[in-house]
Design a protein around this nucleic acid. Structure first.
Lengths: 229, 229
DNA sequence: TTGGCGCTGTGAAACGCATAACAGCGTTCT
DNA sequence: AGAACGCTGTTATGCGTTTCACAGCGCCAA
């Protein structure tokens, strides 16, 4: 549910990769993890594509960005492909993430990080409520937002999640950018205005729900099924 | 962060409207509400477009779907445009929404609905935890998930939000679809497999965060600013 | 061994969307 | 009054992504 003016791209090696491709690669990798967990060794493009709800051609085209070629007879080796996608997506070193706002949503976000995502960890939480500050939350220290600049620079954090009420979001975002954050994930249903070199992704629950409600009353739309030949 | 195979569209009147247009219209309306609240009477396309982070041309094109024409001299009348977008987006009658999963995320969702969105209300909550069932939560009754079918049909609910752990999401979704739900908003980071006539929107926090983390380390991307002529 | 099959990787066409350019019109200034 | 300006609504152009189509190749069967 992103509204994008200009397609965001990233040069890697010598090629430029679309944002949509990145999202799909992340999705493929998650599916591959499940497959590996369930013991699957090899997978064909049409199988993986079906699981990802994508056409096989698109899957193969996306995989062109990754440095791995599958065998025409066995397909893709699940573990190897997962690793190659990881080599493409993952940062060279673990990435530290900050969370601002330790309300219900903030705690729910902590739950998302429990156990998984070793390369992406919440290493600092911020709030303004004295009752939530200066203690440990899920093994992560929490600070008052006024300490953001110091803590963020100290820990080298450049990714942050904003889970505060809408009224406070813009102010928090400004503080974070001032503290050196380069990418933001905003959950408050306010459109943030920030310098163009800061990457912002909005998870706008209000907008998304309205969208779902809108499409709920469509005239029994006809979508393609992915049935057999 | 939607992955779409075929662009979802809805015929309305005699025209077909893209999903992206709907999202932007929802966004425009929210901005118009803020403008009306702050006392603004009229607004030009380039002003509204700047607030929505969109080009003026795209804004005007989107508004072509709505039955309202602005004045070349005064621009758009804020209140009227808001109403016209509402007439396009809103259901004829208030729409009832169900929430499944009353954990931290579920409670955060309740918070989103406090006060606003009179046309979109959570009228039933479901869970499996006996401690959370058969009581009132934010003025909304909660039931055990086994009662879903009965309650949903009784209250005529056809939109639901899934805020349960990933492992339970598919099962919950199946139950909901069986209970007559036509549209789903899924927060669990699992890709649901459902019949094609059910509209599913995924808010995949894990994928989105990985995306943000990925684009956090881009080579100081160059984005256009929306400066003066 | 050899023909055929099915899958992968990739060039080329098609589609949808965003952007740019244009016509209409009311206002305003000379 | 007349002309020029600025904004809207709309039509055309361009671009990016998706889809189609095909070449290459290893395996399997005959």
């Amino acid at each position: 549910m992103t509204i994008k003016r200009t397609p965001k791209r990233l040069k890697l090696g010598r090629k430029s990769v679309s944002e949509l491709v990145v999202v799909r690669l992340i999705l493929y990798r998650r599916i591959l993890r499940d497959l590996a967990f369930s013991g699957t060794r090899y997978v064909f493009s049409h199988q993986l594509a079906a699981l990802a709800d994508v056409t096989p051609e698109q899957l193969r085209r996306d995989l062109m960005n990754v440095r791995y070629e599958g065998s025409p007879t066995r397909g893709y080796e699940v573990v190897v492909l997962e690793e190659c996608i990881g080599a493409f997506l993952d940062p060279p070193t673990a990435q530290a993430v900050a969370l601002v706002g330790v309300g219900n949503l903030g705690r729910a976000l902590f739950a998302y990080f429990l156990g998984r995502r070793p390369l992406l960890q919440i290493v600092a939480a911020f709030d303004i409520d004295p009752a939530k500050v200066d203690r440990m939350i899920n093994g992560c220290p929490s600070y008052h937002i006024s300490e953001a600049r110091t803590v963020m620079r100290e820990k080298g954090i450049n990714v942050a999640m904003i889970a505060v009420p809408a009224a406070a979001a813009q102010s928090v975002a400004d503080t974070l950018v001032d503290a050196g954050v380069r990418s933001l994930l905003n959950f408050a249903d306010v459109r943030l205005r920030l310098p163009p070199d800061v990457y912002v992704e909005h998870i706008d629950i209000g907008v998304t729900l309205e969208k779902v409600a809108f499409f709920a009353r469509r005239p029994a739309a006809a979508e393609k099924d992915m049935g057999s030949p």
